[in-house]
Design a protein around this nucleic acid. Sequence first.
DNA 1: ACCTGAACACCGTTCAAGT
DNA 2: ACCTGAACACCGTTCAAGT
Lengths: 231, 231
Amino acid sequence: MAGTLRRDSIIAACVELIEREGIEAFTMRRLGAALGVDATAVYRHFRDKDDLLRAVGDHAHALVLTGAPAVDHGAPGLADSGEWRAVIRELCIRLRAAQLARPALAALVRAGPPLHDHEFELTETLLAQLHRGGLSGEAGAFAYHALIELVVGSAAIDAPMAATAPDDREAAYASWRRAYAVLDARRYPTAVATAGQLYPSSADGRFAYALDRMLDGIAGLQSGAVSASDR
Amino acid sequence: MAGTLRRDSIIAACVELIEREGIEAFTMRRLGAALGVDATAVYRHFRDKDDLLRAVGDHAHALVLTGAPAVDHGAPGLADSGEWRAVIRELCIRLRAAQLARPALAALVRAGPPLHDHEFELTETLLAQLHRGGLSGEAGAFAYHALIELVVGSAAIDAPMAATAPDDREAAYASWRRAYAVLDARRYPTAVATAGQLYPSSADGRFAYALDRMLDGIAGLQSGAVSASDR
DNA sequence: ACCTGAACACCGTTCAAGT
DNA sequence: ACCTGAACACCGTTCAAGT
């Protein structure tokens, strides 16, 4: 512990701790121990645990946008190259990956509103790309929220498994398939018949499917109209 | 407290407590107090807090299926009437509503695998309807997982707001819009331009849009093929 | 200015003891 | 059989005291 405690080193320690032991084991006292400092010293730099985790979330968001610089400049970043659909796809995949890597991030996004620069930038890029694809104004907003909902849900579902070893993971999926397979075929005919094909591909693959279907649906509405039933 | 403690009355007390004070205020000691019983008495009926919340989740799942009886019988329940798309739409809307009403349910679904009868029944119905729509086997499984991911994400995002009063809710959305509106228009041109149209409609409306786009995409693949990029 | 450490008001859970 | 209550090993956070 050379010198005094800094915000950066606290955040770095949080990231390491959460990544190693999971979010539920993340404790102010453990953080203090990891920093070689009394647990309460952190309160000099962050209001409370929530404030601290928010900062950790922002830190993680920065990684989502790495390689995807501002959209309105000529620099050939992710946001400027290729089809709008492909850009959005890539960005959503990255956002989900970031949330899987740092469950604290998911809690942040769930908590709600824009809070940090990196979140604003992510929103800007998504809205700009949707605009390029013909979805502006309200239609763009609807599409934006739809994509975020899907990303958050997928990350929330896959996060517990992402934290386990690949072998254990496949074993868990297999046991879940078996749970369906051994059901009463009279009561659950389709589930029993489909049991072996549930949890197909990988969690990443399942998300890619969902995202591509969502983008199919969004792209089909490039006129920008929002149907009455959605209001 | 007439007579002895029963599983049902414990679960009912949990539901009431969670609904009134939120999931984060749900405590074994508080539950004991609400039941007029020592906190540790509950451990005679449930392994631990997790086991208890699981049972609460199952209880809530039952409500999702009310009016949607088993799919393989002639009874004119939700699952048998109308277009497969409309049935799935309705079921997903109900599932999300149940998760919004009882955040503990969302935590349950997130935790992962099938655990109770009512979840099996829900899966059965969704898979059967997708089958009716031409998506069977692996394609049906992909579509099923896609729908669940969206429902969970939407519920997770909207749950905090759903718990607040309508007035406060609209005020919160307005302040979030303003947060985008006052950004630097040079760095975030699209976000600033779209600010007033973010968070359009209601949370329910935004979910309906997302769900309809997802179903558009799924319905577009009724051939059942899963594209190579999704594997 | 920054950190310590005792203290407070809580947790979930176990287990011997009561009835 | 079922519930009690003390106890244990933890929490997040506050605040006077040290340096």
